[in-house]
């Protein structure tokens, strides 16, 4: 019995210790961000590997998510004779929810896991310690550029996802199912608000980008310096990011749209 309680205590202490390390890490990372604007080429390199390389998966999944939304939405709306509202349904669900959330999940899988593996491997091969020996701060040189690149990329990717999804829904709705194109766009414009819907979606995606990149970099930096440890950290990145995205999405939605 006493052993069980002790185990619980150890688990609790370990969790809080990790949480504290994570926040200290975040502060160090943030402190490293301002000096990046003097050497933006570091961020540029990371924007390429974090953002540009994620574009393809975002484009393809955005198109298919939009097309599925178009089909499913049409099948439901046509029962009420309201198939002209397909544009509203698609635009609101993509811009408010699916755009930020699904692209953040894909981002965690595509870019987050890569960041963890990269940083974890750097740690296990002692490249980070080597940098410290040369009086180069690895947080500033390695971590901070990746962090900033993640925050910049995520809203752009979410915007691409939503735009492509709406185009996909239009292709299915207008081309395949014969929804009137004028009604599709005009109802969408009438019901979608720039500040309430689109800007809130952008805010969501910035928050998700922040959290996913933070989790990915912390897991990599905190990984056990073995091949097994790096593998485990990569798995944890994807799982924890998914939890964080979905949980935060509820909180953000309640804050933004809860009082309507």
């Amino acid at each position: 019995m006493i052993n069980w309680i002790r185990g619980l205590g150890r688990w609790g202490l370990g969790t809080f210790e990790r949480l504290g390390r994570g926040h200290l890490f975040l502060m160090q990372m943030m402190a490293g961000v301002p000096s990046l604007f003097l050497r933006f080429s570091l961020v540029m390199q990371q924007l390429f590997s974090v953002g540009v390389l994620s574009v393809l998966i975002i484009l393809v999944s955005g198109l298919f998510v939009g097309m599925v939304l178009g089909l499913q939405g049409y099948n439901t709306l046509v029962d009420f004779g309201a198939e002209e509202s397909l544009g509203v349904l698609v635009s609101l669900s993509l811009v408010r929810e699916l755009g930020p959330v699904v692209s953040a999940l894909l981002f965690a899988g595509r870019a987050g896991s890569a960041l963890t593996a990269e940083v974890g491997l750097m740690k296990s091969t002692e490249q980070l310690s080597g940098m410290e020996m040369m009086a180069v701060d690895p947080i500033r040189r390695i971590i901070a550029p990746r962090f900033l690149a993640g925050i910049i990329s995520m809203p752009l990717l979410a915007a691409i996802f939503s735009a492509v999804g709406i185009v996909g829904a239009f292709l299915v709705g207008h081309g395949l199912l014969g929804v009137d194109d004028g009604a599709f766009w005009s109802q969408m414009q009438a019901k979608t608000d720039f500040y309430d819907d689109i800007m809130n979606g952008v805010i969501k995606s910035v928050v998700f980008g922040f959290v996913v990149t933070w989790i990915a970099l912390f897991e990599g930096h905190d990984a056990m310096p073995t091949s097994e440890g790096v593998g485990r950290a990569t798995t944890r990145t994807v799982v924890h990011s998914a939890f964080a995205i979905l949980g935060l999405d509820f909180v953000l939605t309640a804050l933004m749209f809860g009082d309507e």
């Binding site: 939503s162 709406i166 608000d193 952008v202």
Partner: peptide, 12 residues
């Protein structure tokens, strides 16, 4: 994409 969302999709 953001511009398209603003101009084509929303009421802006």
């Amino acid at each position: 994409a953001l511009f398209m969302l603003a101009m084509k999709v929303s009421n802006l």
